[in-house]
Amino acid sequence: MAQTFTFELVSPEKVLLSGEAEQVQLPGAEGDMTILPGHSPLISTLRPGVIDVVLAGGKSRVYVRQAFAQVEPDRLTVLAEKAYDVAELNASAISTQLSEAEAELAQAKTDEQRLVANQAIAALSALKA
């Protein structure tokens, strides 16, 4: 059996996902990364995007916004303000998110806000396709 580590996806309201994972792909602020067991400690903010979790029992894909990840050799914690299971996201839900992101882009004042909104749009468009 492959090595595993504890993965937790936590939203402000509750713990969304918790279990043993074999690998997790994160949309890091400075590039995608895949976390495997025994990863060196890391704290990173995440772009809006999709987290790919390979759990011991199955796979899970979650779209997150405003999130950050805390990695330790034996555990990974993702704190996400907004998280949606991709399997449950239908076309209309994606469109709602997309128009929200576009509204944000229109209102964005700083380059950073524009960047985040653009990243969200890119991630959502990819999901839609």
Binding site: E30, P41, L42, I43, S44, F68
Partner: peptide, 21 residues
């Protein structure tokens, strides 16, 4: 373990972001 913790982007940027949240 502290000395080996990586921060992406740097500490100050993360701290600023987290303080807002």
């Amino acid at each position: 373990g502290q000395s080996v913790v990586d921060y992406e982007p740097d500490e100050d940027a993360i701290l600023g972001y987290l303080l807002t949240r």
